[in-house]
Each structure stands twice: as C-alpha cells, then as structure tokens.
Design a protein around this nucleic acid. Sequence first.
DNA 1: TTGTAGATTGACTAATCACTCTACAAAGAT
DNA 2: ATCTTTGTAGAGTGATTAGTCAATCTACAA
Lengths: 192, 192
Amino acid sequence: MISQSTSDKRKDLLTAALQLFVQYGFHGTPTSKIAKQAGVANGTLFHYYKTKEDLIVSLYIDIKTRMGEYIETKVPAGKKAKQMFKEQFTHVLLWSLENKDEFYFIQQFHTSPFAALLSPEEIKKQLSKSCHQIEEAIMEKAIKNRDVDFILTLLTSHTFGLNQYLAKTKLTKEQQLKTINDSFEMLWTMIS
Amino acid sequence: MISQSTSDKRKDLLTAALQLFVQYGFHGTPTSKIAKQAGVANGTLFHYYKTKEDLIVSLYIDIKTRMGEYIETKVPAGKKAKQMFKEQFTHVLLWSLENKDEFYFIQQFHTSPFAALLSPEEIKKQLSKSCHQIEEAIMEKAIKNRDVDFILTLLTSHTFGLNQYLAKTKLTKEQQLKTINDSFEMLWTMIS
DNA sequence: TTGTAGATTGACTAATCACTCTACAAAGAT
DNA sequence: ATCTTTGTAGAGTGATTAGTCAATCTACAA
C-alpha cells in the first residue's frame, strides 16, 4: 500500500494504455492488449480500473496532473504578466516536445466523446488558474479587454498549433527555442 | 447511374454516419446503426462502401469538398492579401457555425489514426491553395517572412480555436460577426 | 500458526461487430 | 423476350471484446 519499488501495475497499465491509444486509438486498443503490454493478467486491469472508460479518463487526469506539476516547478509566480505568460507558454511547449505521446493523447481525448465524461469540477480545476491569470492581466491592462474565455481559447489554440508545427517539422533544439520565442512574441502582439 | 431524385442511399449513409460519429465516435458507432439510421439494409452499406474505413475516409473527403466549394463561391480571387484572407477566414467560420457537425467531425478525424489513411495527393490538394496564397502574401510583404507551414499552422489553429469558442458561447448573430471580425484583426496584427 | 484482506490470475461468457452470402428485384441492353 | 448488370435485403458467420468469476497467492497482523 505504501510504496511499490518493485512494481506499480497501476502505473504500468497507464503507460501501456497511453502508447497503444496513441497508436491505435481508443477503440482500436482492446483491454487485453493493454494488460499484455503492461505485463499483467487480463483481470488485473479491471481490478485497478472498473471499466475501460475509467482507465481512459484516469489516464487523461494523470497526464494533465503531471503536466501541471511540471509547469508549476518551472514557473515561479510573482512576475510581470508578460514574463509569466511567456515562461508558461515556453515550458508547456518544451514539455510537449519531451512528452509527445502524452500531448497527442490530450488532443485525441479532447475531440472524443470521452471528453464529456469529465466531471465539471475537474474541468473547473484545470481552467481556474489560467482564467485567474488572464483576469489579472486584463485588469493590469497588460492584455486586451475581452472575454476571458475568448483569450483563453486563443492562447490554447496557439499553443496546440505551435506544438503541431514543432512536432512535424524537424528542427534543432536551438531552432525550436527560437520558434517558440518568436511565436510567443507574435501571440503577445496579438493579445496586448 | 445518372441521378437519384427519389433516393440517394450513398448520401443518406454519409449523413447518418456523420451524425452518429459525432455523437458516439468512430468505433462507438456500429455499421448496423448507420445503415438503420439511413434507412437501408446492413448489406447495402457494404455495397456502397467496401469497408467502414472506406466510409469514414469518404465522409471526410466529402465534407472537405463541400466546404471548399462553399468558400470558393463566397470568396472571389484578385483582391488584396488582407481582404482575401479576411473573407476566407470569415466564411470558413460562418460555414463552421452552419455546419457544426461537419466541422467537429473534421477535427475528430484529424486527431485519429484514420488521418494516416489519407493519400498524400489528397493532403497536398487540400493544402496547396492555402500555401500558395501565403507565399504570395509573404512576397508582397503583406505578412511576416516565416516558413509557410508555420504561418499556415497559426492560421489554422486560430480558426479552429475561434470556432470552438463560438460553438460553446451563446452569442447573437451580430455578436458572432463582431467576434469574428475582431478575431481576424488580432490575427492579422500577429502575422503582418 | 492462523486468519484475513487485498492482489493476481486466466479461463470463460454474453454480447457485439464488421463483413459475407444468397436470393431476389429493377432496369436496361441486345 | 432474355441476358446482364446493378441495387437491395437481411439472415448468417467467425472473430473479437469488455467484463466476470472462482481459485490461488501474498503479506502481515493477531
């Protein structure tokens, strides 16, 4: 219960599921294959996750949490608006490049009927922080005075778009950083 | 062969498939349900489409073609770069609001393993026109001198993003148009 | 040592699915 | 009129799937 230094099947199942979902899609991946890839028996999967749906949603929450924690360690609070948005933007993209499967999965999940299974609280929890930052930036007149949701959508889609570009374009680390930088300045020009 | 004024089962099947795919996802929708909803027998579906995959890809191409045709009728060539991009942007968004299911399906399709089934020619055909317009705009110095693919990605993601916002936010027709306008001006500020 | 609670297994099941097959109807074409 | 092609139906098939279950194992507390 306390720790699993030798094996954490829960985690193994999520890892296996991620890899297979990204490759074959949700319904193209049978639970039997997930279990096999994770090195556990068929029934064990259902011991940890009541249903396949449960596994999918759990995986989504797990990834989102991990990304959130990563960003939190990298971006200290208390900076000026532009600097804060810039660091956040940059680190999300760096994370996405280091975790391509994870990032792709999030996109896949969002445009699937499973997205509807997320509890409203879960959604709120994920967005509240970003919304708050945007609200503050608007009050400081650092960014345009528009509907918070509108700004957030532009920010998010810009991020996903750039990720797609970086993922399919072969660039050196240096070029990638330059593109991210450039891209943020363009984004900032747009919303400020 | 020439026309089906009384019934076009091919079309009926696509219509039924679209509605069900959007609601339940690709694999969440059995071919039997598609056939039933289209008002034809199970086997008839496979007379028109060799496989379910074939049906999915055909539906995607059909939607893309219809959208392309719509834009073409609405946006005359030979205008200045900004005006042309603006009209194109606006009409894509208006179309997306009138054809929510279709637009959502395209997104769903893009982030699914089925996207890999598109032939390279099909992909090229879809992108070539936009790429060409961007190249010209760069040469005219109407927009920033960046990789064409980079610009295209920003444009596309901005469009999808705004669509998502408009789809989930209840606005009057007038407010929608205002938002589209505003959004384009922001986009143009960014890339010019 | 024994009791107990959770972990693990894999064979099993009931349902479902994509797709086939055969029969038949409609409509030209010769 | 007969042949041929094409459309349509829907029962049937073999494979696959999510999820179950009874049996065993493990760890550890009493």
